[in-house]
Design a protein around this nucleic acid. Structure first.
Length: 412
RNA sequence: GCGGAUGUAGCUCAGCUGGCAGAGCGCCAGGUUGUGGUCUUGGAUGUCGCGGGUUCGAGCCCCGUCGUUCGCCCCA
């Protein structure tokens, strides 16, 4: 393949089965989210760089080294969004919606991160997002998680996935835990991996989800957050677990779950699978009470998650079947006009129908078969003169004469 | 950003120690002047990812580069 026709590294085309898998995931998520009372938003694919730089926090890798940031022709620094939440929060504030809370938002679209591509990890990838903006109640967390679980069930991938749940507590609890972790790990600093030593300074919570085998031994004896939760945070977490239990969402508590982005507090969760190699998180999120304020809006507690469409699409057992239409086949030029009327009547009735642009009957039948048509309507001049057509069922091979006027009702 | 594997027809892949680029599937045409799937006959495939080097000669060896992939990192 010529170099200049190669798709850009980490991007890909969605065609055929790949496209059907992708859109099936999005369609199902959109449908289920609507059922939970979420409204779909759409915001720009790029924002002023500050929206992400301020929103995601300056310790995250996403901000430090993965953003597609560029000056536009006016000299303003813009960034292709690496995730959806910051843009949604910006839109909430820009549109004055902090006056009408809560807002329940469904979102889907492409995101961009300059990472080393791998299976399930692309530079342009797609997410589905659910956010409840403006509620600090654990019921909102429960609803958001339940909606995610419902989508995974509707996609029939829930069997491969478990929900891992943790709490990060409120800022006070989190700060206390942070201090405890620094104290604990500092005693073993030289035994930690190089990566974790760096994390210890930058973002000590991240040390507890290290995959380094040496670190894991130390992490196993590290304190969990629970003793450091203040009363309000502990109650919040208890309430959430009670709600999830009531709704029937199976939970595995995992005190090692820490979200990558800085703005989280209280609830943190991931739906994980072992079926996708290193890219095990299929849906992840949590509560981010400080983000809107961080961005310059009023204090607005929020909770939400993002799911990777590509990862979900890979978990699907099989690609959804291609739609089956009806092939209308004229025999001879004079029949084409009537055939055109027939296709139009079928389409007007909501039936997927196609008439080939050219070709012999044989060619048109071959195409009908190849494209998975369920039936063929063969229209010859002799039939047209009598007001009938041959209707052939392409699965059984049965063929019968049907009045042209009855074709639509026969195929509905 | 780091380490490993890999790249040959539209697809999946074979190609020996360096010696004329192949198979299956798919595609195109015929067997069927108005009927698909099965069968049958014939046909077309290509910058061997790209660029250098070694050699009488490179798909094969060497260097570089681009893409993919596995792990790390990070994350959805």
């Amino acid at each position: 393949m010529a170099h200049d026709l190669q798709p850009v590294r980490g991007t890909r085309d969605l065609i055929g089965d790949d496209a059907r898998r992708h859109f099936h995931v999005v369609d199902v998520a959109r449908r289920i989210a609507a059922t939970y009372g979420f409204d779909e938003w759409s915001t720009p694919i790029f924002e002023q760089t500050g929206v992400f730089a301020r929103g995601l926090g300056d310790t995250s890798d996403v901000v430090m080294k993965e953003m597609y940031t560029f000056p536009d022709r006016g000299g303003e620094s813009l960034t292709l969004r690496p995730e959806a939440t910051a843009g949604i929060c910006r839109a909430l504030v820009s549109n004055g919606l902090t006056q009408s809370l809560p807002q329940k938002v469904f979102y889907t679209g492409p995101m961009f991160r300059y990472e080393r591509p791998q299976k399930g990890r692309y530079r342009q990838f797609h997410q589905i997002d659910i956010e409840v903006l403006g509620s600090g109640e654990p019921l909102a967390d429960a609803e958001v998680i339940a909606c995610g679980w419902a989508i995974l069930k509707a996609l029939d991938v829930a069997k491969d996935v478990v929900l891992e749940l943790n709490t990060l507590g409120d800022p006070e609890s989190r700060a206390a835990y942070r201090t405890a972790l620094i104290t604990y790990f500092s005693a073993y600093k030289d035994q930690l991996s190089e990566d974790s030593q760096a994390r210890l300074d930058r973002n000590p919570l991240r040390v507890v989800d290290s995959k380094d085998p040496g670190d894991k031994a130390l992490v196993a004896n590290a304190p969990t957050i629970h003793p450091y939760l203040n009363a309000a945070s502990a109650k919040f977490y208890d309430d959430l677990r009670r709600h999830l239990d009531r709704i029937g969402v199976p939970v595995v508590e995992n005190p090692r779950i820490v979200r990558g982005l800085d703005y989280y507090s209280h609830t943190a969760f991931e739906f994980v699978t072992s079926a996708l190699g290193a890219q095990g998180t299929v849906l992840g999120g949590g509560r981010y009470d400080g983000l809107v304020e961080e961005m310059g809006g009023p204090h607005t507690p929020c909770v939400g998650w993002a799911a990777g469409v590509e990862r979900l699409a890979m978990l699907l057992d099989a690609a959804p079947a291609a739609p089956k239409g009806v092939a209308v086949i004229p025999v001879g030029d004079a029949a084409e006009a009537v055939a055109l009327d027939v296709v139009q009547a079928l389409r007007d009735a909501g039936i997927r129908a196609e008439m080939g642009y050219r070709g012999t009957v044989k060619r048109r039948m071959e195409r009908a078969n190849r494209t998975g048509a369920r039936a063929a309507i063969i229209l010859g001049e002799a039939e047209i003169a009598r007001g009938v057509a041959q209707l052939k069922d392409l699965e059984t091979g049965d063929q019968a004469e049907v009045a042209i006027a009855d074709l639509v009702s026969k195929l509905a």
